[in-house]
């Protein structure tokens, strides 16, 4: 185990508490999808990314795009814990006047590098950022987290094609492969299979990992960073609702607000 992993595990647990609390207080949100990306977001924001919370617009910073914008409570919690904005913003999620919109808004939230929420756009947006970085002589990386269900969108494959053609080696995409979309199992709803194989067919460098294992996440990122001549995808097998037993793999938690009893039970579990 890498020496930083215990810290990352503890941070992930904190983010999960923040996420469930935010959704409980907002009375709205997507717990399942937020919880499955926690380790990916934690690894990026607390170990990997070259960022400066005091300068969210720093031109040389690494970029992050949450293509599955509905998972943004995880991103907001990470940004707050990392110091981009005060923790007391978190309870304002989805409320009138809040800088924390229901889906990410780059104009309202410090540290949000790109507006998202309408599914399927992260890779195209990220490809543009990576291409701009190359033209401008920057060496930042662009990290994108996309859902698996949103790979149904045609624009995803348009962008996968272009990014490979342009050899955007500094574009690193994670697929949060939790196996579910709104109406059911990804395989059942849309027939999507062999995600890595599909990316590979377009010329991408591919890896498959356990998306909740920090050692695997960090190693995969290092391998992807070394791949300079083509974009990389890391298909991260995850559990929707990970970390709260009664939420895990129960798709009714795709969009659902916990009752008080459920909230307290989750907090107890996450504090243990």
């Amino acid at each position: 185990m890498r020496p930083e992993v215990p810290m990352l595990i503890e941070t992930a647990r904190t983010l999960r508490r923040d996420i469930f609390t935010m959704i409980y207080q907002a009375g709205d949100g997507h717990p399942g999808a937020s919880l499955s990306v926690v380790e990916l977001v934690t690894a990026l924001y607390f170990k990997v990314m070259r960022i400066d919370p005091a300068r969210p617009d720093w031109p040389d910073r690494d970029r992050f795009i949450l293509s599955k914008g509905h998972g943004c409570p995880a991103w907001y919690a990470a940004l707050a814990r990392r110091g981009f904005f005060p923790l007391d913003w978190l309870p304002t999620l989805r409320k009138l006047g809040s800088p924390l919109q229901g889906h990410p808004d780059m104009k309202k939230t410090p540290g949000v590098d790109m507006t998202t929420g309408s599914l399927g756009h992260g890779i195209a947006l990220g490809a543009g950022m990576a291409a701009a970085g190359r033209l401008l002589g920057k060496n930042y990386f662009v990290y994108v987290v996309t859902g698996d269900g949103e790979l149904n969108e045609g624009i995803v494959w348009e962008a996968i094609q272009s990014a490979a053609h342009m050899r955007l080696g500094r574009l690193i995409v994670f697929v949060d492969h939790n196996g579910w979309q709104s109406c059911g199992r990804v395989e059942q709803v849309s027939g999507l299979r062999d995600i890595a194989g599909r990316f590979a067919a377009f010329g991408w460098h591919t890896q498959e990992i356990d998306g909740h294992d920090f050692d695997q996440i960090l190693s995969a990122i290092e391998v992807a960073q070394a791949e300079r001549d083509r974009p990389s995808v890391i298909v991260a097998r995850t559990i929707k609702g990970k970390g709260i037993p009664f939420v895990e793999n129960d798709n009714s938690w795709h969009k659902r607000v916990p009752s008080r009893a459920e909230y307290e039970s989750a907090m107890k579990h996450l504090s243990a």
Partner: peptide, 26 residues
């Protein structure tokens, strides 16, 4: 030549790609 980005026949991705370019200062 460096300032032309050809994405192929895909206008939706082209616009999103352009948004990415603009977000980085182009």
């Amino acid at each position: 030549p460096d300032r032309v980005f050809e994405v192929g026949i895909c206008e939706q991705a082209a616009v999103a790609f352009a948004a990415g370019l603009a977000s980085a200062g182009l």
